[in-house]
């Protein structure tokens, strides 16, 4: 029983990070109908931005919470710039071509970031500095919760809450929803769709940057291809929850995080990478629009 609860806690920590990455996928998919494969590498860059800024600020030597927040902010800013640059250079010229073309371009950008990353950061794994000293804050009857896990969870929930507020309570958020509902009509209504797309990329990428730092805190080994699988699973999480749906991305992320940790704990670690897809296929066959997604029927 204790073990189960422990696994659940670990799973939720992981899941909240998946959810943060998934939000970026869901938002971009919402406005552009594009699976932005490069997003997983933006998350990787986020981890490295955190790594370098921590060293540069000398945080590795004397950790503290405000400095950790500073590192996270830097990483978020770096990532949002990167996201916007990618959108401008690679995706914008393809606005009118087929979605598949855009998808291949996204894969190309992803490859570029991974290989470029190996060149710039080096192919060997690096150790993320301890921004905050790890402590057990709860240790009773065999269940351990560390402050780092709690921080990851709280940070992700906060960011998601802010995003939800932004999308539903601000003018820009409303414009974003309009664009994702129907980009042509939105532009006819006087919404500057290019601006909205840029903002979407900026926010989504910033969230990925935050996820990069949070992962670095909990799982300090970082390398240029660290984004590959988590990115894919985060996308799966977005689809699972219902793509284009913010609470859906959170739900999907948590389900996948928990399912993975459970698989490793009770089945075999080798099946870890298959379980996310297994759940996805099972759900999509019965609910093609995802758990919280609205199914749309084609008008004939």
């Amino acid at each position: 029983m204790q073990e189960l609860i422990q696994q659940l806690i670990n799973g939720i920590t992981w899941g909240s990070i998946y959810a943060l990455i998934a939000l970026g996928y869901t938002m971009v998919y919402g406005v552009l109908k594009l699976i932005n494969f490069a997003h997983s590498d933006v998350y990787m860059v986020g981890a490295f931005a955190g790594y370098y800024s921590a060293h540069w600020l000398g945080i590795a030597e004397n950790p503290s919470v405000p400095k950790a927040i500073l590192v996270m902010l830097i990483s978020m800013i770096v990532c949002s710039c990167l996201g916007v640059i990618i959108e401008r250079l690679a995706y914008k010229p393809l606005r009118k071509s087929s979605r598949l073309t855009a998808l291949i371009t996204a894969i190309g950008v992803s490859l570029l970031l991974e290989n470029g990353g190996q060149l710039v950061f080096g192919a060997d794994p690096k150790f993320f500095p301890q921004l905050i000293e790890g402590q057990e804050i709860w240790s009773k009857s065999g269940i351990v919760i560390s402050n780092l896990q709690l921080i990851a969870l709280i940070a992700s929930l906060t960011l998601m809450g802010i995003l939800q507020l932004f999308v539903y309570k601000t003018r820009t958020g409303k414009a974003m929803r309009a664009v994702s509902y129907n980009i042509q009509v939105a532009s006819l209504m006087g919404i500057s769709t290019d601006k909205i797309i840029t903002i979407t990329f900026a926010i989504g990428s910033a969230l990925a940057g935050a996820a990069g730092v949070l992962v670095g805190l909990n799982n300090p080994k970082i390398d240029p291809i660290m984004g590959l699988l988590p990115g894919l699973k985060a996308f799966v999480a977005a689809v699972l929850g219902g793509i284009g749906n913010i609470p859906g991305a959170m739900l999907g992320g948590l389900i996948i995080g928990v399912a993975e940790v459970m698989t490793v704990g009770y089945l075999s670690s080798t099946f870890r990478d298959a379980i996310a897809f297994g759940i996805l296929i099972a759900i999509l066959i019965f609910r093609p629009a995802g758990i919280l997604g609205k199914s749309t029927t084609e008008k004939v």
Partner: peptide, 21 residues
């Protein structure tokens, strides 16, 4: 050498942008 895969991916992106079909 080391730039191989970087070039490869850049070429791919350029090809897709210039000849999307």
């Amino acid at each position: 050498k080391d730039y191989r895969m970087v070039f490869y991916s850049i070429l791919l992106v350029i090809l897709m942008i210039t000849r999307p079909q």
